[in-house]
Design a protein around this nucleic acid. Structure first.
Lengths: 145, 145
DNA sequence: GATTCTGTGTCAGAATATTGACATGAGTCA
DNA sequence: TGACTCATGTCAATATTCTGACACAGAATC
């Protein structure tokens, strides 16, 4: 089962990578754009958690995107150390193009599934995530018993 | 949905990584051991495909494992250039220890799912994989329509 | 008010994976 | 036989990511 999950994720990433290459975007870069599209004003650390990479990796991604003029970050933090990023017009435009490609990949991935199956898959994955995230979910008596 | 898949795969990998660290094994290394356990006599390229990495990466993994005495490869190829790897006794032992840990992680991941849900998830993932693998599955008329 | 704790951004180094390339062996076909 | 194609193993260089570490800002605690 774990193997299946890995295989599916690998296939998805490969397909996304192939599509996004036309826009000179990597998967983490697209993830960053997508997250900022859904909700602007996200800090580096928040983006890193959302894209499942470390703060350091996201920092490099962010710099690259900033250098390409796709997003802006205030030079000084308004509060704390967080410098929330924001998409520029060019960033929004590129994200739109990319999202079309990614959406097509997703639809192809789900093309053989009915709506009910899709919903079941969604909830199943969600259960898997919460199962792995909460090591104490099955009681404090000990996970192995 | 793609996000959920990525999240689940990331969580699984993280959990596996944390467990396998005790045995000084990385996830690709474990994948290699697992593949060889299921079927011995696998070449470098076959292992690479099975573990979703490139031949070059698997080559490094294989060398590391060979240096640790966990597997052996003939110095000369019997036929072609393929030098099929084989687990040593130490390799089988370490794989056994690792598989116990990984199995526990998988069970925890699936702990909140019923057998039926698990089966549904399995088939759903399988459909996703085949959907991404066969770009012409929905007919040669064009994927976008 | 001082201390601790948590969260954040960043630097440096190492580990890892990938792209690109090349040589070798096997099968195919004219 | 010779040319072609395909798969494999490996090398080199590059790119990406992670681990470890440090400094800073705010909240919590005493």
């Amino acid at each position: 089962m774990g193997y299946l999950l890995k295989q599916a994720a690998s296939a998805l990433r490969g397909a996304m990578d192939a599509e996004l290459r036309a826009l000179e975007l990597s998967v983490p870069q697209y993830s960053c754009l997508e997250l900022l599209h859904q909700r602007e004003e996200l800090s580096n650390a928040e983006l890193a958690r959302g894209a499942f990479v470390t703060r350091q990796s996201m920092n490099l991604v962010l710099r690259g995107l900033e250098k390409r003029g796709l997003l802006t970050r205030p030079t000084t933090a308004a509060t704390g150390r967080a410098r929330p990023a924001e998409l520029t017009e060019a960033g929004r435009e590129l994200h739109h193009q990319a999202s079309v490609l990614v959406r097509a990949v997703e639809q192809q991935m789900l093309s053989a599934l009915t709506a009910a199956q899709e919903d079941s898959l969604r909830s199943g994955l969600h259960e898997c995530i919460t199962g792995l995230a909460d090591p104490d979910a099955n009681g404090p008596g000990g996970p192995s018993l």
